[in-house]
Design a protein around this nucleic acid. Structure first.
Length: 461
RNA sequence: GGCCGAAUAGCAUAGUGGUAAUGUACCGGAUUGCAAAUCCGAGUACCUCAGUUCGAUUCUGAGUUCGGCCUCCA
């Protein structure tokens, strides 16, 4: 039985969908004005894994992840680049999709864009105004009146008084209360604007998620996810907006992933200590990045470093080695491994625990291959691959995983095979010096040889 | 200042009221012409102090250290 840690209640709860065997899930996606960094990769991979596991568990899942394509940073960046906003956002949406594909992240069922849903936002803001929960400030902006929403603070565990006591809440004279947040920003000259009954402008950040989730998933849905830095104020405000409009519960389970750190500090754009996904993919395979992310629990903080990526590489190599060269096999028989894997995933998506099961399975496969035969291990190998696939791992053919593809300046597969044959001849003649010379030569080219019982295999380092 | 979370071997990550798991690194052995891979084995890892308990790394309290949110953030 699946348990999910609910940020709203701060405890693990049994997951019970609103509709039997169906899950509706919304995740806050990217603001598209730059390349995705590893922090974004974590959100993508974590919720992709949730999505995959829910489907594996037999749920029909409707997964929506929005794209914020209008906001201050986008406007600013487009101006800096001298580039139309549409062109900028489309460029980075395309880049985001490339990054996702490389990380084996499945496309959500819908990726609504804020600018395509302005009418829905206007309608929601109007409802809030009609209900007296929102008001227009002297500067023309429309604000949400947090004092009108009884549950304000329930997600982030804050009280209004505590928030007001915070030193960092700036005093703003156009708002009735410094905690009131903007629903609609009155237009400034030159900025993109949409007509509205209360004056041309553009939406505040929070309203898009309320409007688009309601449109695509309804007033009340199962899971809402995002980075833990969105818990406050973004998600808190989203609840206030949605529940203020509908008068009833918005989301049953809130999930927040921890962030990636660099040198024990949060990776973020403002600290300028971030690594983009494509930057990291120059040195590591995407599957290694995915492994690195899933090797820690999604709610913990995760420190980024080449040591961790190197360890991920070695670990994946062990798993692929276990299944390399195994004969085809039908579905693996019932095993305790699968039960333990499921139990781990059912426990709030405990991927590190689930991966430990994969390694025990790999050890078992290696033992069987050694003491019995490859054929005897084939079913377990198929199981290992299938369970790995649930996590979006072990999706490659082992042979191509190890051999990779030749660099422009590297040896071709044929050249490698030729040298291996030459070495085999030397070995047959017991010319060890020549044999070792060839092996060293290949090693210098990044090709590692392994002499197994069934012949010599090779891999690109 | 308010609110939250974390501390487990050299490193990284799980987990548990009673033999602490997984990867990686290191050491010994098997295997190998030598390696690599693989297998077997070893290694005195639960932040400190107090409390509850027959028993605490786990529960409670205090402390220390680190991190996060309170401002745009994944």
């Amino acid at each position: 039985m699946l348990h999910i840690y609910n940020s709203l209640t701060r405890q693990k709860e049994v997951f019970e969908p609103i509709q039997p065997r169906q899950v509706r899930m919304y995740v806050c996606g990217m603001t598209v004005y730059d390349y995705c960094h590893l922090g974004h990769a974590r959100v993508m991979v974590v919720f992709d894994t949730v999505y995959r596991y829910l489907k594996t568990s037999g749920y029909a899942v409707e997964y929506v992840r929005n794209i914020t394509d209008i906001d201050d940073k986008i406007i600013k960046r487009a101006a800096e680049n001298g580039e139309p906003i549409d062109a900028l956002t489309q460029r980075f949406i395309d880049a985001m999709h490339e990054d996702e594909d490389s990380l084996s992240v499945l496309r959500p069922d819908a990726e609504p864009r804020a600018t395509d849903n302005i009418q829905e936002m206007l309608a929601m803001i109007q409802t809030l105004l009609d209900k007296g929960i929102a008001y227009q400030g002297k500067n023309g902006d429309v604000y949400y009146d947090v004092s009108q929403f009884e549950g304000y603070g329930k997600l982030s565990g804050r009280k209004l008084d505590d928030l007001r006591a915070g030193e960092r809440v700036a005093v703003d004279e156009v708002k009735d209360d410094p905690l009131d947040f903007v629903l609609w920003k009155a237009s400034k000259p030159g900025d993109p604007a949409w007509d509205a009954p209360w004056g041309a402008g553009r939406p505040g950040w929070h309203i898009e998620c309320s409007a688009m989730s309601q449109k695509l998933l309804g007033d009340h849905f199962d899971i809402h996810g995002g980075g833990s830095d969105l818990q406050f104020p973004h998600h808190e405000n989203e609840i206030a907006q949605s529940e203020g409009c509908t008068g009833h519960k918005h989301v049953n389970y809130w999930m927040h992933n921890g962030f990636i750190r660099v040198n024990d500090e949060k990776m973020s754009k403002s600290l300028n200590n971030f690594f983009t996904i494509r930057e990291v993919l120059k040195d590591y395979k995407a599957a290694e990045v995915r492994f690195f992310i899933l090797n820690s629990h999604y709610r913990s903080q995760l420190n980024y470093g080449t040591d961790q990526l190197d360890a991920a590489r070695a670990s994946l190599s062990r798993l692929y080695t276990a299944i390399r060269g195994l004969p085809e096999s039908g579905p693996a028989a019932y095993t305790d491994y699968e039960n333990r894997f499921i139990a781990a995933m059912d426990d709030d998506f405990n991927t590190p625990e689930a991966m430990a099961v994969l390694f025990e399975l790999a050890g078992d496969i290696n033992r069987i291959r050694k003491t019995q035969s490859d054929a005897s291990a084939a079913a377990l190998g198929a199981l290992l691959q299938r369970l790995g696939n649930v996590l979006g791992l072990l999706q490659d053919d082992p042979e191509s995983w190890f051999k990779g593809s030749a660099n422009a300046d590297g040896l071709s597969d044929d050249a490698i095979e030729t040298l291996i044959q030459q070495r085999l001849d030397a070995r047959t003649a017991k010319q060890w010096a020549e044999s070792d010379r060839i092996r060293d030569e290949l090693k210098a080219q990044g090709v590692l040889l392994e002499d197994g019982a069934g012949g010599t295999t090779w891999k690109r380092a």
